[in-house]
Computed example of a mutant assay.
Amino acid sequence: MAKTILAVDDSASIRQMVSFTLKSAGYEVVEAVDGQDGLDKAKSRSVNLVLTDQNMPRMDGLTLIKSLRGLPQYATTPILMLTTESSDAMKSQGRAAGATGWLVKPFDPQKLIEVVRKVIG
C-alpha cells in the first residue's frame, strides 16, 4: 500500500509540483492550502509524513508542527519543512517545534524524493 504524504502549502503551484513529484514516485498525496487546513486533514486521516511550508495564512508551519506534535498519533510522524526560509534561526525554531528536517525552495524534485525515501521508505 502506498504511503500517504500531507503536503501543506498556500501556493497552488508548489502543491502541484510536490504532488506530481511524489505521486510519480509512488506516494499518495493529500494537499492542504494552509496550516489550519493541514491540521484538519491530519486529524481526519492518518498520514506517514507531513511536508509543510512556513509562511502561510491562518496558521504558519511552526504552529502546525507544534499542533501536530501535541496529538498522540503525530508525536513521532516525520515532519519536513519545505520553505524559502533558510536562516539558522528559523531552522532552530523548526527543530524546537519538532521538525524532522528542512528543505529549501525552490526544491529539486529528485532531492525531495531522496529525502522522503530516507525518512519513510
Results as ranks from 00 to 15, higher is better:
G94K: 00
K41F: 07
A42R: 00
G38S: 03
A99Y: 09
L64I: 08
I79T: 04
V29T: 10
L80I: 12
A96D: 14
A96Q: 13
F20V: 15
D10G: 09
K23V: 15
A75I: 01
S87L: 04
S46N: 03
G61F: 10
Q54R: 00
S11F: 10
E114W: 08
G94V: 06
K3P: 14
T52S: 11
I14E: 11
M1E: 14
D40R: 08
T76C: 01
P57M: 08
L62H: 06
L62A: 02
L64R: 01
K41N: 06
M17P: 15
A42S: 04
A75T: 01
M1V: 14
Q73Y: 02
T84Q: 11
Y74D: 02
D108V: 15
D53A: 03
V30S: 05
L39I: 08
T63S: 14
I14M: 13
L22K: 01
Q110Y: 12
P72W: 00
K41H: 04
S46C: 01
M56R: 03
G38A: 02
D60Q: 11
L51Q: 05
Y74I: 03
R58K: 12
K118W: 11
P57E: 08
L80S: 02
G98S: 10
T84W: 10
V104K: 00
L22W: 07
T100L: 12
A99G: 12
T83P: 07
Q93A: 13
D9G: 08
S24Q: 15
K91F: 12
Q73G: 01
S87W: 03
W102L: 09
V115M: 09
V104W: 03
I113L: 10
A25R: 03
M17Y: 09
G26K: 11
P78S: 04
N55H: 13
V30A: 06
T76F: 03
P109K: 00
S19T: 15
G38M: 04
L64S: 05
W102M: 09
G98E: 12
S46R: 00
V47Q: 02
V119Y: 08
M59Y: 05
D60M: 13
T84E: 14
K23Y: 08
A42W: 04
E85A: 10
S92H: 04
S92C: 04
A7N: 05
L103T: 08
I14V: 15
L64P: 06
S24H: 11
I79C: 02
P78E: 06
R69P: 14
V30I: 15
V115G: 02
D88A: 09
Y74M: 02
V18Q: 04
L112A: 06
L103V: 14
D34F: 07
K105A: 09
R95C: 09
M1K: 05
Q54H: 08
M1Y: 11
V30Y: 00
L112M: 11
K118L: 13
K43M: 12
G101P: 08
L62Y: 11
